[in-house]
Design a binder for these strands. Structure first.
Length: 505
RNA sequence: GGGCCGUUAGCUCAGUGGUAGAGCAUCGGACUUUUAAUCCGUUGGUCGAUGGUUCGAGUCCAUCACGGCCCA
């Protein structure tokens, strides 16, 4: 027997008492019955009978509506021969009204032994109590699952954030706001799928590999894993981009994928090693149409998931209902840094001097595009509260984007910032196989000189481009960050059911 | 990686170098319309870990672990 199979070391008196109750349940028959079938949800009942004037106690008694509800018992108030309990299911809570006379003495005595946190099934007629609370007047009650561990304090809830993340199952039971956020997340993702697939957009959802022999599609360090049978290292994907564009080569003109990416980087309030990304590709579109799609999707998702486009995030008002500003990067940097002359924007040494003046740490290998991007991040990004597309990223920092026809130093690319956070990234795809091969070579050179985030050369991807990628626009949206914005929570951990945590000691 | 803060009963938290505390929960009792029910009584501790200073450490010091916030 290994350590992993030992009893948990945190046994205590409360658990011991409940184990005794479970022992008695086992002695009495099936301790974990699975034959109770509820026929109603608390939330549906609360909604249907919300009108207290129409559905007073008399009207409900006359209606005689029998329901079977099941859920976790979160409150228990005993008053001699009558008791109240609060049942919580996935939709909402509903009160149980239990009287010894209606339930029978044996069942009522059994109920006295139930603990907060137990999962119960109840059957009875709907009523409304003196204080106006919709309730089930229970005439049959069953303990479906005995909870051995006590729940946190019903009033203060679970305040220890570490325990909230590690034991999300407890957090979800007791923290209303956690349930709100994850229900919102589900609605957001569901709506986005539906919106993308609906006419006139007609995108098709696909699944591409999570394990890559050559990591690609983003400049990021990958996780490495190993395939034993083949004895080769594989990389968890940092982005699905190159596979999705292969599908466009294959004729799937409008594809999208919502799934996990993995990046071997630090953990922070904005970064988790695995995170969820939407990527989509539309043939015969440019980054301008992709900006339109991005803007429409976010606006309509907010409307669908929240019922409004006026948001509050981190105490700031953000309106995704108004048209999103589109602002070329060079122009933004110039406006926020009047002391940088227009002619200096394309002068590597001048940009390096400005970076030094502003205390921005740069490496000798940085070209003028990378330096401009550093200046942008240091002096512009924090001010981008309202939705803003920053356009025309330098070619140097955009190895997969199409160079601008009139100005090959920049690309037909944008990033969307909302609340000073990067939410989306999109561009007209680079479909010139010879240009792409040259860009890969530049990335390989950067990797050889020590940039471990630089990309690998993907020969098959070049081969695919050589068969012909139609002119295509692409988009990536950080779903976690979008949900953070819509849910008004400050940390990515609050929108991940199980955020990454170091193993417990 | 750096700075600051935190870790005490199941939960939420006090605790100023000198007997380990409170509220809720638990357990026992009363109570047939409660909403954090109420009332009476009761139990519950490896003070994150290790080492040090001290007559004496939850408290001071060091190291480590885990977490939070900020910075890179």
């Amino acid at each position: 027997m290994t350590d992993e199979t030992q009893q948990p070391p945190d046994e205590n008196k409360l658990i011991a008492e409940r184990r005794e109750k479970l022992k008695a349940l086992r002695a009495g028959g099936v301790a974990f019955p699975n034959d109770f079938v509820p026929d109603a949800f608390a939330g549906d009942l609360q909604a249907e009978f919300a009108d207290k004037e129409r559905w007073g106690a008399e009207a409900l008694e006359a209606l005689g509506r029998r329901v079977r509800v099941a859920g976790r018992m979160l409150a228990k108030r005993q008053m001699g021969k009558a008791s109240f309990a609060q049942l919580q299911d996935v939709t909402d809570r509903i009160q149980l009204f239990l009287q010894q006379a209606a339930l029978g003495e044996a069942a009522y005595d059994a109920f006295k032994g139930y603990d907060i946190g137990d999962i119960v099934g109840a059957e009875g007629v709907l009523t409304r109590t003196k204080t106006g609370e919709l309730s089930v007047k229970v005439d049959a009650l069953r303990l479906l699952t005995k909870a051995l561990r006590p729940l946190p304090d019903k009033w203060h809830g679970l305040a220890d954030v570490e325990q909230r993340y590690r034991q999300r199952y407890v957090d979800l039971v007791v923290t209303e706001d956690a349930r709100r956020v994850f229900k919102l997340r589900s609605r957001v993702i569901g709506f986005i799928r539906q919106w993308l697939e609906a006419a006139p957009r007609r995108f098709m959802e696909v699944e591409t590999p999570m394990m890559h022999a050559i990591p690609g599609g983003a400049t990021a360090r990958p996780f490495v894993t190993h395939h034993n049978a083949l004895d080769i290292d594989l990389y968890l994907r940092v982005a699905p981009e190159l596979y999705l564009k292969r599908l466009v080569v294959g004729g799937f003109d409008r594809v999208y994928e919502i799934n996990r990416n993995f990046r071997n980087e630090g953990v922070s309030t904005r970064h988790n090693p695995e995170f969820t990304m939407l990527e989509l590709y539309q043939a015969y579109a440019t980054y301008n149409e992709i900006m339109d799609i991005t803007e429409g999707m976010i606006r309509e998702t907010a409307q669908a998931a929240l019922g409004r486009t006026a948001l509050t995030w981190e105490g700031r008002d953000i309106d995704v209902g108004a048209p999103f500003k589109r602002w070329p990067m060079e122009q933004a940097v110039r406006e926020m840094n009047p002391e940088i002359g227009e002619h200096e924007l394309r002068d590597r040494d001048a940009l390096a001097r400005h970076c030094a003046r502003l205390g921005i740490h740069v490496k000798p290998g940085y070209g003028r595009g990378k330096l401009l991007t550093e200046l942008f991040e240091a002096t512009v990004e924090a001010s981008l509260i309202q939705p803003t597309f920053i356009t025309q990223y330098p070619t140097e920092v955009s190895p997969l984007a199409r160079a601008n026809d009139a100005d090959p130093g920049i690309t037909d690319r944008f990033e969307l910032f909302i609340g000073a956070k990067e939410i989306a990234n999109g561009f007209s795809e680079l479909n010139d196989p010879e240009d792409q091969a040259a860009r890969f070579l530049a990335q390989v050179a950067a990797k050889d000189s020590g940039d471990d985030e630089a990309m690998h050369f993907d020969h098959d991807y070049i081969r695919a481009l050589e068969y012909g990628l139609p002119p295509t626009g692409g988009l990536g949206v950080g779903i976690d960050r979008l949900v953070m914005l819509l849910a008004d929570v400050p940390s990515i951990r609050d929108v991940l059911l199980f955020p990454y945590m170091r193993p417990e000691a």
